[in-house]
């Protein structure tokens, strides 16, 4: 126990890094994914095509490869992210946005076409009917799948450990290497820290789902 107390600062910083990676990437992925979903249902063929290409490209590429590209690959085209942390956020959000897009799109498709038709018949344009009528109803139905995307993202942050970001997983490997005799305590502490993030958000998502349910 005293071992964990001694390394509390390290564990706490790792936890906060993991948490901020997940929160920042989650927020950006939610924004980008929603825009992509709107593109995928838009009447403009070019936008639909672009969004479809994006989703297929990022959904079918291993996240580690995306990390590699954003950390090392872009150096060859004279680009570089200011820090490894920023590169990790970029990789995680670009990747996760593809999954958010598909979840939101399935939500959009679950809203009956009559809702959008009624909106258009009133004179709302595509953007207005999407933002005021379709998306608010779509989001309510996609809270459970978005919850799954979020939990996957929280765990995927651990890939950043391989790219010089000191997150929970990086702390785990550092402590485990230095203290072989304490390995079980180290694992228990790190797993508990991940569980704090995933379990509390699973609970949060189910509260949100109940709060926002529409009477039909």
């Amino acid at each position: 126990m005293s071992f964990l107390v001694d390394n509390f600062t390290l564990l706490r910083d790792g936890f906060l890094t993991t948490l901020s990676l997940a929160l920042l990437s989650g927020l950006l992925a939610l924004l980008l994914g929603t825009v992509l979903a709107a593109m995928r249902v838009s009447p403009v063929l070019a936008l639909r095509g672009l969004a479809t290409f994006y989703v297929e490209a990022f959904r079918n590429t291993p996240l580690t490869v995306i990390f590699f590209f954003l950390v090392f690959g872009i150096v060859y085209i004279d680009l570089q992210f200011p820090t490894k942390f920023v590169a990790a956020v970029a990789a995680l959000s670009l990747y996760t946005a593809a999954f958010v897009c598909e979840a939101v799109r399935s939500g959009i498709n679950s809203v009956s076409t009559g809702q959008a038709e009624a909106a258009r018949a009133l004179g709302l344009d595509f953007r207005q009917s999407l933002t005021t009528i379709v998306l608010p109803q779509a989001f309510r139905t996609v809270i459970p799948p978005l919850g799954n995307v979020w939990i996957a993202l929280a765990k995927n942050t651990s890939i950043a450990a391989g790219f010089a970001v000191t997150d929970l997983t990086a702390v785990l490997s550092r402590l485990a290497n230095a203290n072989g005799d304490q390995i079980l305590a180290v694992f228990a502490a790190v797993v508990a820290a991940y569980l704090i993030i995933t379990l509390s958000s699973a609970w949060g998502f189910s509260v949100l789902e109940r709060k926002l349910a529409i009477v039909r």
């Binding site: 009447p43 009956s112 009559g114 909106a119 018949a121 009133l122 004179g123 109803q137």
Partner: peptide, 25 residues
């Protein structure tokens, strides 16, 4: 055919559907 002009025209034409289509939320 489309766009703002079509939306403006639709605003002058009321429509009532068989299945009501009131905004559920």
């Amino acid at each position: 055919e489309e766009g703002k002009a079509l939306a403006a025209l639709r605003s002058d034409v009321g429509m009532v559907f068989q299945s009501f289509n009131l905004f559920a939320h």
